[in-house]
Simulated scan of single mutants.
Amino acid sequence: MSLTVHRPVTASPAPGRAADAADARVVVRRARRAPRRHLLRLVGVLVVVLVGAFAARVLLGDYTVTIPDFVRILGGEQIPGATYIVMESKLPRAVLAVLAGLAFGIGGAIFQTTLRNPLASPDIVGVSLGASAAAVSAITLAGWSGWPVSAAAVAGALGVALAVRGVAGDHGGFRLVLAGIGLAAAMQSVIQYVFTRVDEWDVQLVLRWLTGSVNGVAWPSIGLLALSLAVLLPATAWAARSLPATELGDDTAAGLGVGRGRTDVLMLLGVLLVAVGVAAAGPIAFVAFLSGPIARALNRGRTTLLAAGLVGAVIVLVGDHVGAYAFADLNLPVGVVTGAFGAPFLLWLLARGHTGRRVA
Score class of each variant (00 low, 15 high):
N331I: 12
W219Y: 15
L332F: 13
A307L: 06
V9S: 15
A142K: 01
P122G: 00
R17W: 05
G81W: 09
N299K: 11
G323P: 03
L330D: 01
A131N: 06
A103W: 06
R208N: 12
R25M: 14
T211D: 00
D329R: 06
L74T: 06
R208L: 10
A53Q: 13
T246V: 13
M87G: 07
V316D: 06
L349Y: 00
G301A: 10
V190T: 14
S12M: 08
F174V: 10
E247Q: 02
V265F: 15
S12F: 00
G173E: 12
T114M: 12
G105V: 00
F345I: 03
A253L: 07
Y325P: 05
H171V: 05
F289D: 03
E247W: 08
V314R: 10
I284E: 08
V9A: 15
A279V: 01
L266G: 08
A14Y: 03
V276S: 03
L46H: 08
S12I: 00
A153S: 02
V43S: 15
A120K: 01
G249M: 06
S2G: 06
A297W: 04
L178Y: 03
R175D: 03
D202I: 02
S132T: 00
L205G: 01
L347V: 00
A21E: 04
F195A: 15
D329V: 05
P118K: 07
T114L: 15
V51Q: 14
V51Y: 07
A285Y: 10
I284T: 01
D329M: 05
A22S: 12
N117S: 06
L266S: 08
A239I: 03
L46M: 13
A157E: 08
L248Q: 14
R260D: 05
A163G: 11
P283L: 02
G146K: 11
A21H: 07
T113P: 11
A163L: 12
R29A: 10
S128Q: 07
Q112S: 03
